[in-house]
């Protein structure tokens, strides 16, 4: 089964190999769901476990996620209108006052690689913009990222705004200065210490929803 080659290209982080491999499977008539679940998502599950076991470093995780995303872009036109549905929708962004996006982008790719639709709002995102996106896309989870200690209060403001608006969505936080205590203190529904951790958290929250 040559979906194995797609699977392997993600594990080996061969960004330039994956697009033709995915296209070849589509052309060969392999079911889209098999390419997606057994190839792309299945490989990212393994990558996530390898990272959790300390076998992979962050740069390797990033390139694996980019490889998956390259393959997903080839597959995406076939997903539109198909019966394959996302596991859910996640709105993500770096909070207001913070321009850092490396961690947020990595989480975004890993979440997408786990089968979720991701709406990435970018950086320096105002609380009102998160709320607007939540109303528009009706996600199960909103992810707030921050790298600066000075921008962390924007996470609290965002959560307060969602509470005032009574939007039914789980809000999770992450980023270098954030920890579980801070997440608890500001009333977040969860904290992800790294990208695979964020994926596990989102899967759990969506299952609970």
């Amino acid at each position: 089964m040559s979906v194995d080659a797609i699977f392997q290209s993600i594990l080996e982080r061969k960004r330039s190999d994956i697009a033709p491999l995915v296209q070849a499977e589509i052309d060969a008539g392999t079911e889209i769901s098999v390419i997606l679940n057994d190839g792309l998502i299945g490989a990212m599950d393994v990558v996530g476990r390898q990272f959790g076991d300390g076998l992979l470093f962050v740069p390797e995780l990033l390139v694996a996620a980019e490889t998956m995303k390259t393959g997903l872009e080839v597959l995406r036109p076939k997903l539109v209108g198909s019966e394959i549905t996302n596991r859910g929708t996640v709105v993500i962004g770096t909070v207001q006052g913070d321009l850092h996006d490396i961690g947020k982008n990595l989480v975004s790719m890993m979440v997408e690689g786990a089968g979720f639709a991701v709406v990435d709002l970018g950086v320096d995102v105002a609380p009102e913009r998160f709320l607007e996106a939540a109303r528009e896309h009706r996600p199960q989870v909103v992810g707030l990222s921050a790298l600066l200690t000075t921008s962390m209060p924007a996470m609290r403001r965002c959560i307060e705004l969602f509470e005032d608006a009574e939007i039914d969505v789980k809000i999770i936080v992450g980023g270098a200065p954030v920890n579980q205590e801070y997440a608890d203190e500001i009333g977040a529904d969860g904290y992800g210490s790294d990208a695979p951790g964020a994926v596990r958290l989102i899967k759990r929250l969506v299952t609970e929803t």
């Binding site: 470093f57 962050v58 740069p59 490396i102 990595l106 270098a176 210490s193 990208a195």
Partner: peptide
Amino acid sequence: LMHPRTGGY
């Protein structure tokens, strides 16, 4: 240095 395992500082 970026911590190679956690991405931390």
